[in-house]
Structure formats: C-alpha cells, structure tokens
Amino acid sequence: MKKFNDVFVVDDDKVYHFILKNLLKKNNIEVNSRFFENGHDAIEGLKENSKNGTTLPDLILLDINMPVMDGWQFLEEFRKIKGTLNKETVIYMVSSSNSPFDLNKAKDFPNEIQDYFLKPVCLEDICRIFLN
C-alpha cells in the first residue's frame, strides 16, 4: 500500500529527479510528483496551490544544499505558512551531506522532519518512504 499521492521533490540535482522518477516507475509506485530546483520555488508552489485550491503535497522530499534558498531556509519558511495549508504534510530530508552541522541542524525541526536519508537513495529507501 502506498502512503502518499502527491509529492513535492525539492532538489537542484536534475539527475536525481530522473532517477527518482524511474525508480518509482520501475516499482509501480504511482504518485503525482512535482519537481522544484530550490526552496524558494517550492514555497511559491505551495502558496500557489493553496491559493487556487490545487492539491497540496502530502510528502516533501527535501534536499539541503541548493542555490537561492537551501533546505534549512525552506523549513523556516515552511513553518510560517504551515498553518495556512489545509493538509498534513510529511517531510523527509534527502541529502548527500553527512556533515555534523547538517545532521545536528535536522534536530531543530522535530515537528517538520520525519527522517533523514543519505544519498544515494536506494530502492529500499524508496520503499520505506512510499510504502507501508
């Protein structure tokens, strides 16, 4: 059973977008996914969907190191608008960074972050995130 229907993928790595799409396809996990290259675009996307009544994501896969607005800045912004979104959204961090700074920083968002996955994401990770 899949857990999510609508997914926002926030990551500046286009190769990762491609891989994720194909992994989901390969495992017959059908979800509506939207891809954003930085935090700023994703926040705008959320605001837009909320405004015009389009479906909001129930899952966000969030990278950390991105141009314009990184993952941490996105989370700060997300906190501010969280209350206005009429949907329970789960966030997983998916990053290549294993620096202590980032691993500690994740603890600052206990209510927002569900889990932290280190790239590369493997099939197992995908199943853990998407399936029961």
Binding site: L23, K119, P120
Partner: peptide, 17 residues
C-alpha cells in the same frame, strides 16, 4: 565527500536503471 557521494551515487543508480 558530499559531491563525490552524490556523483558516485547517481552513477550507480543510473547504471542500475
């Protein structure tokens, strides 16, 4: 470490696919 990890990871995944 970050960059090598992401490149190498992508490499492996793409070859799998």
């Amino acid at each position: 470490s970050h960059n090598l990890r992401s490149h190498a990871g992508n490499f492996t995944m793409l070859l799998d696919l």
